[in-house]
Design a protein around this nucleic acid. Structure first.
Lengths: 265, 265
DNA sequence: CAGTGGTCTAGACCACCAC
DNA sequence: TGGTGGTCTAGACCACTGC
């Protein structure tokens, strides 16, 4: 099917070779890969070419470079995030984010970056349909699996709602999680929307997620709606693209409306 | 917030500069960007450095290089794909894929790459819970917006179902689309699941989608289940990562089960 | 300190494109 | 044929790491 292509560039070939060696276990996960000068000598290409090849693997999330130290295989398995289940699990613990990590036998950890009252950033204000700079409660968290950062999760709640539940200003928001607190205030979420985009990480995100610049991230805007159809919470999730698998499912509400064989308007 | 960083590398600075010039309209979408030697002379850095900067923009999907001709701004807006609505729109035309494109005022086009009876590929057989190499109907399509490829969509239906509806072997599967044909056979989908991952494009995909190698793609495995909970169709979608925005929404089925304030098991 | 990867340059050769 | 981008090399300097 593929058209005849000119022979691959050397750095692509080197990248394929290294990919193969990673896959078949030639290189172990404990040891660093051979150094760039070593590979350069072994394969008879310049160090630049080796470096370019390794950059290909980095972009694919296959290896991780620790500067001044060496290049290592990234041994983190993919985490499945089931949109429905993660919120249904609210009765089992504090954060919904821990469920998926534990399921893989990894150790989750949550770092609270910021919890407090701040002016709403433009994007958030827009979604919550409030004025820019109107006060909101923000909860910024960084989630880890086995001490590797796996996700940034910034949650915003309009202040006029949040002020009713002082627990929301604590790290541990208490039994059932923040949605339960919202429910107690009469704003329990009954509907959720998520918008998913893929983009390259910003510098800040790359730092916090320990990614190389330019690596793709998944950007999820999660909105919780209460029974009065008010947006009561926005959560912005940013996650390394190669690390996650998102799962959604739904019933077809119009399953009984297939056109009949004889046709009608 | 960001820690003190050493000054950025030159190619990053050049990339930022070019990004700025694209954003503020210094460079028009009709004209190619200045050539690499020109930029090299203007900015006083080597051509390699310019080239690297442009590669950053390519990975972000901001520009598109036509070899031997020039580098151009990619002016395609993001398309929103609403998982529920796209299937609900089945009564309006043939393909569900056209809806989103038209909504943006772009011209959709579908290219049928392959329609026929083939042995099930391993991944597909696994999902459909049939033997590898058991026969399936495949419909491979490539979707365009304004003649730019926006999506690969390969659909698989177990042959024992598909053979009941000869229309499924035609390009135009008829009124209501393929799900209506399945419904007529007693296998109308009532439930859907989608799994979304992000990865770098394979060579074949890069060619078909006119991407540069290494660019991230969104990979969606869409499964349609009938009332007997049998997987009656699998659709594999591959789309340029920067081109799409995925939208999902769902009601919380457990909204009335928030723990009460006084608590119980 | 020696070894690692990050980056930069000058120069070069090539494939591809439009004319 | 001349201009475009794709790639490669040798050599260099640097920041960072662990010892």
């Amino acid at each position: 099917m593929a058209a005849i292509q000119s022979p691959k560039s050397q750095y692509q070939q080197v990248a394929d070779l290294l990919r193969g060696r990673i896959a078949d276990g030639t290189y172990s996960a404990d040891q660093p890969l051979p150094s760039e000068p070593q590979l350069s000598a072994e394969l008879g290409v310049s160090r630049q070419t080796i470096n370019r090849a390794i950059n290909v693997l980095r972009n694919a999330g296959l290896v991780r470079v620790r500067r001044g130290f060496g290049t290592f295989i990234r041994g983190v398995p993919q985490v499945t995030r089931d949109a429905k289940k993660r919120y249904a699990a609210r009765n089992q613990g504090t954060g919904a984010g821990d469920v998926e990590i534990k399921a893989l036998g990894l150790t989750p950890r949550t770092e609270y970056v910021e919890i407090g009252r701040v002016p709403a950033p433009p994007g958030v204000a827009d979604v919550l349909r409030i004025e820019v700079d109107a006060p909101v409660l923000v909860r910024r968290r960084r989630l880890f699996a086995n001490d590797e950062p796996t996700q940034l999760a910034d949650s915003f709640i309009p202040w006029d709602i949040a002020e009713g539940a002082p627990e929301l200003l604590k790290r541990d928001v208490g039994r059932g999680g923040s949605y339960t607190r919202l429910a107690e205030l009469g704003h329990g979420p009954v509907r959720f929307t998520e918008e998913v985009t893929v983009r390259t990480a910003t510098e800040d995100e790359a730092q916090l997620l320990e990614l190389d610049g330019g690596q793709p991230v998944i950007d999820i805007t999660h909105i919780a709606w209460d029974a009065a159809d008010r947006a009561v919470e926005v959560a912005l999730h940013v996650m390394p693209g190669n690390l996650w698998r998102l799962r959604y499912d739904w019933d077809d509400p119009t399953a009984d409306e297939y056109p009949t064989a004889d046709g009608d308007a």
